[in-house]
Design a binder for these strands. Sequence first.
DNA 1: GGCATTGACAACTGTACGGTCGTAGACCAT
DNA 2: ATGGTCTACGACCGTACAGTTGTCAATGCC
Lengths: 118, 118
Amino acid sequence: MSQAVTSVPHPIPVDLSDLIAQRFRVIGEPLRIRLLDHLRDGESSVHALTNALGATQQNVSKHLQVLFQAGIVARRKDGTTAMYRIVDSSVFDLCELVCGGLQRQVAEMNAVVRGETR
Amino acid sequence: MSQAVTSVPHPIPVDLSDLIAQRFRVIGEPLRIRLLDHLRDGESSVHALTNALGATQQNVSKHLQVLFQAGIVARRKDGTTAMYRIVDSSVFDLCELVCGGLQRQVAEMNAVVRGETR
DNA sequence: GGCATTGACAACTGTACGGTCGTAGACCAT
DNA sequence: ATGGTCTACGACCGTACAGTTGTCAATGCC
């Protein structure tokens, strides 16, 4: 699907780098990552997410707003509750890639600590 | 060994979300993205990167420091010049994934603008 | 109707960080 | 040795943003 394009040649346009950076910053918040992780099970309400994450309702609502404006989640009003769901699931691929890099670094640090201290 | 790629089950640990978020913030700066994009062609010196990006030497050095401490680039001293190279090429996969999401959004916005406003 | 609950918005505060300036240290050439 | 070049470090300033608090609109329940 969206696997095809992904141009971004070496001379990356400045505007594009701004957009990409902005996107990364949106996902670069711990609470937002945990929010998305919970939404992985399906759509959920602000109240449920608030209880699940142990954060205040206002803060959860605020971060969901950021994710909504970034086009990562969608909102649906169900009577009195607002239901949020993920519409751009590529964020999970991003997290998995990052985790791969982190695990690589941990392994490397382990090797160093265990005796190859340079 | 550390081959277990991308665990991160639904109840994501808070510590891990912090690590992932920190990682995203490292890449979430336009200048750093452009820096990495230039290093895609191979290792380069601070001076060369400074000229290529039109930024100040101090700023380039500073951002390279951040990328270095994050384990994304490596440093090599060649006489009087410092040569930087990429050691974690997964950042490019990250950028491509983000670009895919962006293009999807642009396409959607185009569709809306062109008449399906409904 | 009156009350409680849910979610969003606005204002505020503290902190973190990007960018710049100045300077110190290391290396090379003459 | 001296001057010039390249890089890194420390300090400062301005901005951006995360988190909190307070308030209001909308809805459901009695």
